[in-house]
Design a protein around this nucleic acid. Structure first.
Length: 127
DNA sequence: CCTATGACAGACA
DNA sequence: GTGTCTGCCATAG
């Protein structure tokens, strides 16, 4: 429940017009191996907690929801806030990925790689 | 305790 | 690029 709570707060912190990956949220929440739990949290309580769920996408920069089961709505919501999503549901992470704290890395992948190196529960706060 | 779940990620063919 | 397989782990029951 600790993890879940932190994950929710992180998701709420993703700014309009930016996206974060499940892995990124999990890492920021203190456990880079818990990406699936982020998915689970969104699945079970995104509506109830008014989370900006549309801003969470997978590590390949794509929408994970399936067509006919949320894909279209997520795409609409993202486009409405200025994120470019192509017909296949892909977003350019190098352009739209959220960089908490404005940390600069050579690339989005480098940024993620760095986060993923943290040990679970390690001192926390990447903000 | 055990099992099931989940909108994942990475490695590999 | 695609498809499959495996590891992953916090929660709920």
């Amino acid at each position: 429940m600790e993890f879940e709570q932190r994950a929710k707060e992180i998701i709420k912190a993703i700014p309009r017009g930016k996206v974060a990956t499940y892995l990124q949220v999990a890492s920021l929440a203190g456990n880079h191996r818990a990406a699936r739990q982020v998915a689970r949290v969104l699945h079970s309580s995104s509506a109830k907690d008014r989370l900006p769920w549309q801003r969470v996408i997978n590590s390949r920069g794509g929408i994970s929801l399936k067509r006919g089961h949320g894909f279209e709505e997520q795409k609409r919501r993202l486009i409405k806030e200025g994120v470019h999503v192509d017909s296949r549901g892909r977003v350019d992470l190098d352009v739209f990925q959220w960089e908490p704290g404005g940390t600069r890395f050579a690339s989005a992948r480098e940024f993620l790689r760095n986060l993923a190196k943290q040990k679970p529960s390690s001192s926390g706060r990447a903000f």
